[in-house]
Design a protein around this nucleic acid. Structure first.
Lengths: 246, 246
DNA sequence: CGAGCTATTGAACGACTTCAATTGATGTGG
DNA sequence: CCACATCAATTGAAGTCGTTCAATAGCTCG
């Protein structure tokens, strides 16, 4: 259930151009601000760790060692209840932190899994907090940003229909990618339909159908995991209005 | 829509006995730890602010001034999207903080509303951070705790049925109240069915029906907003098992 | 090539929502 | 002070959207 097969050799991001605007629109707020953490740490001697697809960065219950800054690749964080229910709490990319939720805990409280080949920077939290005055501030901002992000998704999942949720997800992902300097109109989903559905509290079939409907409306073009956003404005409208048939 | 009538004169908590165990079980983790913040600040000269039911502590968009520690009363925090969709992100009681999500922002990002008469302590964040070394640490822990709490509710809302969600809510509330020294078996809900439904992503009718079914199963006794938990163990089992008819 | 995984689509079902009516509590103005 | 308006809660009946079950096709990998 946890280990889905995925294109294992695909390398994460080839960074066409950088120094892009940190314009984070859509549902998530504060995600792009993480880029500044990277700036802050760029000449700090950090332990780097490479991971490949389907590899666990850490699992819930393991002793918490480091805080990880995603430098490349695509990850998911997931909660698993003791009775087996699973919930993906977010998809993480460059600039995001893994392990934030367990900052005050002796053990990790979620699983972090690579969906792709990637690179992580291990942050020695205690050291950095003392040496770098701005570090604590940035961590606080990241924590608060995660809360806002979660609340916005709780709002979305609680008030939007299936098509709207999928539209919201695509727009959010597009905005995040754009903030990293990638195309906002051509998305490569790194997760399965099942994982996407899990995150959006939908079944994988409903995700498929929602994508098909959005495609039928001419808002997007679906080709497996590659999504092209044809009408960003209309998609944004579709995210809001329950039934908007173009 | 936002302003529901409620018993306006009811005073919040009469604190039967304190110094209770901080045993925070159920869905929420880390909620009880907030009590230690109160200990930390108990002989600090703090501005106190009293509020009455239905009064806004702050609204999204207002300039962020203070961080509020709930000392008495019952509050909700809520998000409102620009197109009118509303989502209650949590119910807050003694030891909880209001405004945490906007720590790094110039304006508040959610509404905070009193559901009851209550008292708040205004925390001068910048000052306390410098003067009290443990303060920053506690704030970080509260932030991380809120993230875990949110993720656990995302898991619950995404994987549980209506009756299970209501059961989870009651158990969570009971555990939090017990952590504050109150009875874990006799709950006085301070929110309307509509607010409870909003938080649980259900309609008010579904909440009512779920309560009725749990009562019919003999797990709880419902009398308007007063709920007695008759069979905690069975309720806990009902939270897990989809259809458990005693 | 066959096993396994992912994605897509159809059909039937079911859980929750929506609409509607009733009751009781609260509050207000004539 | 009571008639009337408002709001909260409950329950029933009908409707809907998403789920569940099932079948098919494409793809990767051993």
């Amino acid at each position: 259930m946890l280990l889905e097969a995925a294109s294992p050799s695909a390398v994460a991001f080839h960074a066409p151009h950088f120094g892009a605007v940190p314009a984070v629109a859509g549902v998530v707020a504060g995600g792009g601000s993480a880029r500044s953490l990277e700036q802050l740490l760029k000449d700090w001697p950090l332990q780097r760790r490479c991971v490949h697809a389907k590899q666990y960065v850490f699992r819930a219950g393991q002793p918490r060692q480091a805080l990880y800054l995603v430098h490349a690749g695509f990850f998911k964080t997931a909660l698993v209840s003791d009775d087996g229910r699973e919930k993906i709490t977010g998809f993480r990319m460059r600039g995001d932190l893994l392990g934030l939720d367990a900052l005050d805990q002796p053990v990790y409280t979620c699983d972090a899994v690579a969906l792709d080949t990637g690179e992580l920077w291990e942050l020695p939290y205690a050291q950095l907090r003392e040496r770098l005055p701005q570090f604590q501030e940035r961590i606080t901002a990241m924590l608060a940003g995660e809360i806002r992000r979660d609340w916005n998704w709780m709002l979305a999942l609680g008030t939007l229909g299936a098509d709207q949720r999928v539209a919201a997800f695509l727009l959010d992902l597009a905005a995040r990618l754009e903030g990293l300097g990638f195309s906002a109109s051509r998305l490569m989903l790194r997760m399965t339909r099942a994982e996407l559905g899990n995150f959006l509290s939908l079944t994988l079939e409903t995700v498929t159908r929602a994508l098909s409907r959005l495609q039928a409306r001419g808002l997007i073009a679906v080709d497996g995991r590659e999504i092209r956003i044809l009408e960003p404005a209309a998609l944004q409208a579709a995210q809001r209005d329950p039934a908007l048939c173009h």
